[in-house]
């Protein structure tokens, strides 16, 4: 078995080949840095920056939206409250108007009733006066008849009945 160290020691090192490889690599490194690494690293940083910025923007917009939403919700709640208050006010007004109308109507009805009662009372009074007049008149006429003919008891009764019947018939005819 030949060890690598033995191989090395047996070789006469030709330094120009070794150094040519060194120089070749250094040139390769310079070129790779220029073409393979610098632009890619720049792009990676750029993309990182862009992603960071996008995420930050999104976060900021989210916060803004949240604020707006809270504001709108507040405003909406306020509007609802206002609407309810206004509705209540309107209802109160309506109740008041209804109450006023009702009381007015009741008053009017009472007035009408009172007038009617008064009229009825008046009519009754009038009727009573008329009745009294009539009774007096009838009594007078009965007295006249009594005086005209002095009759026996049966004739008396018949007469009164006659007169009453006649009078009543006349009355009912009216």
């Amino acid at each position: 078995m030949v060890s690598p160290l033995e191989v090395l020691s047996q070789m006469k090192l030709q330094w120009h080949w070794i150094l040519s490889q060194t120089v070749a690599f250094l040139i390769l490194y310079w070129l790779l840095r220029k073409f393979a690494f610098a632009p890619i690293q720049q792009i990676l940083r750029e993309r990182e920056e862009r992603v960071r910025k996008t995420i930050e923007d999104a976060e900021r917009q989210r916060v803004e939206m949240e604020q707006l939403r809270a504001e709108y919700e507040q405003r909406l709640a306020h509007i609802e409250e206002e609407a309810r208050a206004r509705l209540q006010e309107a209802m109160q007004q309506a109740y008041q108007a209804r109450d006023a109308l009702l009381s007015e109507a009741r008053e009017q009805a009472e007035r009408i009733l009172q007038r009617a009662q008064e009229q009825i009372a008046l009519e009754r009074e009038k009727l009573m006066v008329e009745l009294r007049d009539y009774i007096v008149d009838m009594a007078v006429r009965m007295a006249e008849k009594l005086i005209e003919r002095s009759l026996d008891r049966t004739a008396h009764h018949e007469l009164i009945n006659d007169i009453l019947e006649k009078e009543l018939r006349e009355r009912t005819k009216h």
Partner: peptide, 29 residues
Amino acid sequence: PDWLTISLLVGLALVILFWRMSKRLSLYP
């Protein structure tokens, strides 16, 4: 020597490959 030729050719291939890549770099790879 063959090994030096091959190593130089590999280096040249790398340079050409990455030079071509660097010509059409994009933020959306």
